[in-house]
Structure formats: C-alpha cells, structure tokens
Design a protein around this nucleic acid. Structure first.
Lengths: 240, 240, 240, 240
DNA sequence: AATGAATGAGGCTTCATTCAT
DNA sequence: GATGAATGAAGCCTCATTCAT
C-alpha cells in the first residue's frame, strides 16, 4: 500500500521516474518539507501527524499512504535532511583542495545559509541535537577535511574526535545563538578564524583564510513555504 | 503554607539533614532529582509525570502538591540545574584570578564531572539544548571569564558572542560526543588547549595552561539514585 | 472521632452546651456557612472540600473532623438551610391568622430577604433546585397556609399540589430572575398580587392584601462574611 | 472541514434520512441526544464524557471530533434544546391570534409533552435551571404572548418581568412536581386557569380558555432511546 | 490514492479521602 | 483536635493509527 518512491534528495530528480504520475512523489516531498517546517518551529519530538497533514495540505489519512508510522516519518525527514546537508556542503567545496579552506568554507557557508533561511537552520539544529545519525554524518564529512588539512601540514590537533566536536558543535552553537537572537554580522568569519587558530593555524594565516570570499551560494529551495490556514497556533515549543 | 519549604537543593543545609519537621518538604527535591534522571535517559520533552512520580517514589497526585502543571516541573528542574551549574563552576574557580585559567578550569571541570557522572551530564546537555534560559545562564558565567582574560591581555577575540558560543557549545559537544561513545581520555585538556589557541593564546602557553592540575573536585551527589521497580524500561525517544 | 455536636440551626443555641469548648462547635458552623457561600457562587454540586476548607479558614484535614464524607457536608448544609428557612418564615408570620395574608407575607419576606442578601438567596435557590427534601419542606410550610386560606373561604383552587407549585416556584423564579439581573423594585408586591388572584382572590382584595406593610424584618446574620486570606489564589510552587 | 457538519437537528431533513454521504455527520446528533438522556437522569453538571460516548455508542475520542471541550458539549446541547423548545412551542400556537390562548396552549402543551416523555421533561427542567441563556430564550418566547394579550386587553399585569417569571417558573415547577411524583391529571388545565386569573382574566373566562381542547400534539421523537450496555448505573446526583 | 470519521491507549490533572505528626 | 502532605481513583483530553467510502 505504501509506495516509498525513493525520490528524496533535494529536488534534483528532474528526469527520473516515468514522469506520468509525478504528483504522487510530490506529495511525499510535500510531507517531508512540511515536517521540516514543523521541526523548525517546535522541535523534532513535537511533530504531530495531524498537524503535519494540515501543514502539507493533505488529509490526515493521506500521511499513511506514504509512511507506515510516525517513526518512519521522522526517519525519512532525517534522511532527507542528511542528503540536503551533504549536497549543499559538497557542492560548495568540491573544487577546493586545501583542507583548511574546505573546512572554513563549509563552516561559513553553513552559517550563511542559516542566516538566509532561519527556518531551515532551526530544523537542522534540532535534528542535529535529536539524531545521532545526523551527527555521525556531519562528523564524517568534517573528518575528511580535518585529515586532509592534517596531511597537508596545515592543521595540527591532538585528538581528531575533539577537533571534530569543536568544529561541529561550535558551528551549530553559532547558529543556535543566532536563532536565540545573538547575531554578529560576520560571525562566520570570526568563528572560522577562531577554529583555524584552535586547530593550529597561525593567526595571520587563519585570518587570511577565514576572510576569503566564498564561492557562489546555492539556491536554498525546499523550505520556507508558509503555512496557509489556522490561527497563530500555540501548541508546542515550551522554553527555548 | 503549602509549598517550596526547602527549595533549591545544593544549599549547604547547615546543621543536620533530617531536621524532622520539614522532612516532607524534601519530596520536592526528590522530584527534581528524579526528573533529572529521566532527562538523562529520555530527554526533556519526554518527561512524563506518572513516570516522574514512580521514579521519585511518590504517587502521581503528589507531584501536584509541588507543581501546578507539567510545564512548571520542566521550569523548576531547569532552574535547579542552573543553580547547580553556577555553584559548581564558581566553587571551583573562585580563587583563580587569571581569566584564561578560569575559563580552562571551568571547561575541564565540567568535562571531568560529566565523565564521572554521565547521567548528570546527559541531563545537563539536554537541558542546555532545550532551554535557552539555561544557555543564557551558562553564557553569563563564561562572559565574565572571557572579559577578564581580555582585560588582562591574555585572550584576544573578535566577537564576544562568537567566543561565548565557541566555548560553551564545544564543551557541550565534547560531552555529547562522550555520551555518544567517543571518549578521548584527555579530551578536556585537548579541548581546553584548542579553545585557548582559538582565543588567541600562543600555542606553548595554551598547552601549559591547559595541562595544569585541576583543583580538588566537588562531591557530585544528588543524582545517580537508581530506579526501583518497573520493567526493563525503554519506552521513549528513539534516536538521540 | 467526629463529634457531630448538634448545634446547627441559626445561632439560637445561646446557652446550650457547656460553654467551655464552644470553639469546636464554632468550627462546624464556620464550615456550614462557608459551604453556603460556595453554593451561592458555584452551585451545590460544585462544592469542593479543599475550597470549603480554605473558605472556612481551616486546613483541609479539619473538615474530616466534623464530617465523615463530602455527602455528609451536603446533607448538613441542607439541614441548616432548611432550619434557617423555617425559622425566618415562621418568625415573620407567626402572629398572622389569615391564610391569604400568611402566604403573602411569606412570599414577600422571602423576596425581600433575597434582595438584601443575594448570596443567601443564590444558595437557597440552588439548594431548592438540587434537593427535593428542601422542596418538600417549603411545600409543607406553604401547604398549611393554603389550607388555612381555603378553610377561611379566602382562597379557591382546583388542586392543592398545583397551587403549591405555583406559589413556590414562581417565588423562586422571581428570585432567580432577580439574580439574573431582572429586578423590579416592588416585584414582591406584584407577584403576591398575581398569586392571590390566581388563587381566586378578587382583584381589589388581592391588591390590598399584597400591599400591606410587612412586619419588621429579621436580622439576616450567618452569611455574607467575606473570605479573608489569600492573594487571588496561587496554590503551587513558586519555583525560584 | 472537521466539525459540526450537520448542525442543529430538528431540521426536517427533507427527502431521505440516510443519504449515505453525510451519514457520519449524524454522529453529532447522536451525541446531543445521548447528552439529553444523561441530563435527564443525572443533571447537567454531572455529564461525563466517557459516559456520553458510551451512551451515544461511540468511542470517547469521537466526542472530540465534534466538540473541543466538555464545556462546548454543554453549550451545544443547550442550544439544541433551545431550538427544540422554540420550534415545538411555535409550531403548536402558530395559528392562534389570541395572546391569552397562545400562552395557555404553550403552557399546557409543555406539560403534556412532559407527561408523555418524562426523560425529555427532566432534561428540559434541568437545563432551564442550569443555563440562563435557556431561561432568556423561554422568556423571549413568552414575552410575545404576554404583550399580545396585554394589547388585546385580555391580560393585565403590573410587571412584565414578574409575569414572565410567574408563567415560566410555575410551569417548570409543575413539571418538577410531576417528576417528584406529584402528578395531578388535569394539572395543565388547573395551572393554566390559575395563571390566567393571576394575569387578570376573569375567573369564568379563564376557566373557559384553560379547558379548550388542545391542537394536535407534535411527535416527540429524538429522545427516549434506551442505553444498551453497561452496569445498572446509578453513579451520580444524590438527592434531587 | 485520498479522504476524514472513528478508535482507544495513554497522558495530564483534579479532588475526596487517608494518615503521620 | 488540627494540620497538611500523600494517596490514587477517576475524569478530561490528545494523538497515532485504522477503516469505510
């Protein structure tokens, strides 16, 4: 009954799948995106399927044509987000050979995109907190850059795991702070510089690398569609 | 007449612990501690009041003699944890005048305690993620040390907010990584060193400061009481 | 364990009971009166024992020193109110020999007192609706007057039961309307006149009887004490 | 899309009853009717939603597809009953031009129906006591007849509000007495005669109007469906 | 596939009652 | 007796899931 058309990923599946009944796959995508919007506002654990259905403009029963269970929705959204992340990051630093710069670019692009699309950023941060698989994925991306920099003699660190944590969590932290209302305009550069220094890059060089212009940004897509119906809501998100 | 007789735990409860008369009011403390244990295992949003009651060995109705609503429990526990944090941190670095060292000691002690009491650590991390008030509190503690180090010419950073995020989130991240299973034995020193370097301390000096022996640790207390009854548990939160 | 000191009735038991420990009996009376105030505001079925305790300025446990169960409280209050009613009514028309006038005076006094003490009136109306024993009591008082009037050739009616209902319910209705906000200044006279006419008294005579001056009113007593303590409520834990 | 599809019952549902498509939406009506049966047995304030669900043969959750809260159920049932009342009354006296007779017919029909369907009567009386909006509605219906009678020179009264209370409450009182076990066979005629006299109609004329034959009665419908499952019941309301 | 009503387990909350001090 | 914390049954309400159309 469910169909599981494997069309996640970020919209890139243009000519894939017999284009006759794209509608079906679109609904699934609409659900996933709606879920991300809800994540952004209320957190992962707070996602409710009737709200999801409403947000995606389908009836509640329809959700079950695409997912067998709530758990499956969470998983699918996690996968989708992971794909988005991989893709956005790798797209941007694909041509860079320098490990330190790859790292820098990744961190800064991430923060940039977060500033442009706070909803997406909020969802990412929350999933990162919620789902250790996502953390693993992010880590494995970073790990490559770190090792590359190490081999190239650009970076120096005592523990790869600690370095990993430093980079990943301080980036997420900067975004969190931004969402909390503490936004420094060139926070991305400042953070990148600090991180490079922390990873053994001399101050002058760190600053130079951290302030290089970024490659052309990606089109964000896929999120930010506002909800249609309903009063201002007030169901969820307690403190944060 | 009814409530909050004894209040905030970590007070030094002067003469005798069991002063008889207010023995009942210690139930509140039992509830808060039970809540922390549950946070540690399942997350903040997953706290359920019947489970809380069971964990604290009281009946469900008793919870409502101390908190009007579930929301109030979350808040009270957040406050409690915030108090614990402030106190532990300030207790440990109270005699240190050097901003860079204060920072270092704080970060390292925190990680140490987390390693000794993973349950407490898990609760702290989760509350930190969940509750922006806790983040604010941690930030304000750190801010003092940062400014001190800056005035003393020991630290150099471009943005206080970013520096704040760097220190706080990478510390929490290191603990999260530890709880995820990535434990580096000297992680605290390594992280401290990286952070100092990131904040402009020369490499050699950073290493020296980061490897100084720590002051005598505090008795952790207050957590780690095991649950008594119940099935093997495993109800909640999937991934994290 | 309970004491059941039979001191209900309306304060008249001056020199009864060894006056040593009147305090005890006073508490019981305080509870009954508090209950009446709550009846007036929320209705009989809505009485809650913790609220009762607060209103009576005792602790919740104390209620159970005087009543074994909530049901017993309701009953005691019903009895008290019945006594009050009998007493007030009979006190006022005790010297009147004319059935029609007795009826008239009873109805009018009742409405008068209701206007002077709306809280008491509200309680009476609600108990009248709730408790058929009270209805019986009121009925039996009225029945005497009706029969008297019939024997004296002053009243004429086809069914005693219907006449009873007419008088009792329209009186309660007038009070209810008053509490609903529809207050006619001399509603008591108007109603009495209508009732007399309905019971076969010629119009002129009805008006004359209905407009006779009333005997001296009773001191109301026993209700209307305001609540003492408390901010606007705030039962729970103030956390901090 | 979710709520109150069919609304207020007593509509004549034109062609076929079971039109298939909106069959589901008739659940609402089942709920309202079930609520009336419970009102009749236990009182308005005593309505419990699990019992309501059982009585209406749906699961408890279903109730919340139609009403957001218990309070909303009470309100909706009140409105429904108000509609039923308006309709029944106006249906019966629609062709009568004489204010006194309209009044008489209304009162008598009401008592008749109450005798035929004591469950419905009990619900009506209880709602009338509980809900001042219902009282207002009844009043506004009566008011028209009273004014008409006044204009026509048939009725004479000093205060419309008092007259209103007299008629309405004595009618409800007669029904209450009937439910209490005091049933006079011609109670409706006797009461009507008394009321007319009370409103200034000469005795002979009053009797003549009060004893005229009534129009054909309405089919009562909508109540009296027995409960299916369950223990012998008897949980609630003690006295009345 | 889509819809939306129905379901019911399970969580939150209240409140009469008990009990130790 | 008086107190007020503790108790737990019972009611309200939510929400993932099922099902008939």
């Amino acid at each position: 009954m469910t169909q599981h058309s494997q069309s996640h990923s970020t919209e890139t599946d243009g000519p894939v799948l017999t284009r006759g009944h794209k509608k079906k796959a679109r609904t699934r995508q609409a659900l996933v995106e709606a879920a991300l919007r809800i994540y952004a506002q209320k957190g992962v654990g707070e996602l409710q399927l009737n709200e999801l259905a409403e947000e995606a403009q389908v009836s509640n029963g329809t959700v079950y044509n695409y997912f067998r269970t709530r758990e499956e929705v969470l998983e699918a959204v996690g996968v989708e987000l992971a794909n988005q992340l991989s893709q956005r990051v790798s797209a941007v630093s694909i041509e860079i050979e320098d490990g330190a710069r790859r790292l820098t670019v990744g961190v800064r692009m991430f923060i940039h995109q977060a500033r442009q699309d706070p909803q997406w950023a909020s969802a990412v941060v929350r999933v990162f907190q919620y789902d250790r698989n996502i953390r693993s994925l992010v880590a494995s991306n970073l790990r490559n850059d770190l090792r590359l920099g190490l081999q190239q003699g650009l970076l120096h660190y005592g523990s790869e795991d600690v370095a990993l944590g430093l980079v990943a969590f301080s980036t997420m932290g900067t975004i969190t702070a931004m969402l909390d209302g503490y936004d420094s305009p060139d926070g991305d550069q400042v953070l990148a510089e600090m991180l490079l220094m922390g990873l053994g890059v001399p101050a002058a060089k760190a600053r130079r690398i951290a302030t290089l212009p970024l490659p052309t940004p990606q089109p964000a897509a896929a999120l930010a569609e506002p909800r249609k119906r309903g009063r201002p809501r007030q169901t969820g998100t307690p403190t944060s």
